[in-house]
Design a protein around this nucleic acid. Sequence first.
DNA 1: GAATTTATCGACCGGACGGTCAATAACTTG
DNA 2: CAAGTTATTGACCGTCCGGTCGATAAATTC
Lengths: 226, 226
Amino acid sequence: MPSPSSPQRRPGRPRAGSEDKRARILAEAFRLFAEKGFAATSLGDVAAAAEISKAGLLHHFGSKEGLYTAVLEQRDADDFVGMTDIGDDVWAYLDTWVDLARDNARSPEMVRLYSAMAVDGVEADHPAHRWLHQHFARAVEATADAFEQGKAAGTVHPDAPSHELARTVVALSDGMQLQWLCARADAAADGREVTATPDHTGLPLDLAAQMRLVVDLIAARWRRPA
Amino acid sequence: MPSPSSPQRRPGRPRAGSEDKRARILAEAFRLFAEKGFAATSLGDVAAAAEISKAGLLHHFGSKEGLYTAVLEQRDADDFVGMTDIGDDVWAYLDTWVDLARDNARSPEMVRLYSAMAVDGVEADHPAHRWLHQHFARAVEATADAFEQGKAAGTVHPDAPSHELARTVVALSDGMQLQWLCARADAAADGREVTATPDHTGLPLDLAAQMRLVVDLIAARWRRPA
DNA sequence: GAATTTATCGACCGGACGGTCAATAACTTG
DNA sequence: CAAGTTATTGACCGTCCGGTCGATAAATTC
């Protein structure tokens, strides 16, 4: 006699208007991959979280790798750096990097997922590699372009090494995220409440402020009055 | 009749003067963890590489986690940033960061292992977390100390934010390693020979040069003539 | 309303993985 | 030389994992 308080689903197509399971699975997979990493998250974990069977999950995504790439593609849609219309003001564009850091500080799961994918993806045969490669290429090129346009507009010293500076901004963003995640985990483990509010996190590391510092460093060296 | 060309070992203690299996296992584990990541490397893989049985491996290290921490401890012994005698010249100390980047470019497996551990270790309950925390703390504090000593010696502007600059250097080092690994994997996948020589790698990314760039950026803003 | 398509399930499979155990052979100690 | 210790093996175990298969039921098409 099945308990009436656990109305488990029977096989068969669900009634119309039911939850969009595919979206639910993507959301839960995103969360779990970010929390525990890709390799350490099983299809069973994701299925349980999405309240569907493993077989049901595979029906939608075919394989674990299929699920992974679907999550990646969805995340790519949210990725806005390299997309924003930069105009020709590099320094305003660099501010969007600082803003991005501030946004990231609000969604540590996202940061965790990104970092995990970034390390997994360095291997050329990994499913995430193509994604990572494009991500780096887009971010670096967009930023380098911004510097070049700044030179054309006269707001950047013509000797500034655009490409190398762009790489620096991207690397700093990634590396700082690692330190921030580590500090955050420490704080959480110590039982200290880690507030979700972005402006004062109580952490010894302010993601946005650190980005600001480097942007200012670059500006101090290469900015030209317009 | 066992082939004479495959003299497989029989059970029992090996003859005196044989290979130091423990060291061999550590070396192979290091290599494999770096190549494929911790989770994706099985005890069987390591055992096969070290030419010992799985049971023999477990005899030395007790568990997979035991092996992991042993590898970590060995790596720590080689970790020299934060250890070097910095004297009171920050700018010379920052050069050791550039040198470290140059060294790292010679051992991509090391870089890969470090990056993998860095991401795994952000989780507070992961076996590598303590290691990562100490690693960050040591690197940042040593560098921050160097800036502070520079202030005392008068070679650094008193308003320089030592701690934040230190974090920047560490983050840049980590983040740039990620881009470098990615670029390297791309080059290797394209069949282009990736030369082991450090001075010209043929890569679109020179690890040491990128570090140099940021060090110069910091110096341009905060250095004081002695 | 019959046939088809779609979403879901439970059961199952083959394999890998981390780990245990008893046996064996070389050294170490008495 | 006998007893104990140490390094090693092959065989085995329980578990979990990614994936397949056939059944089922709602929705859709004809």
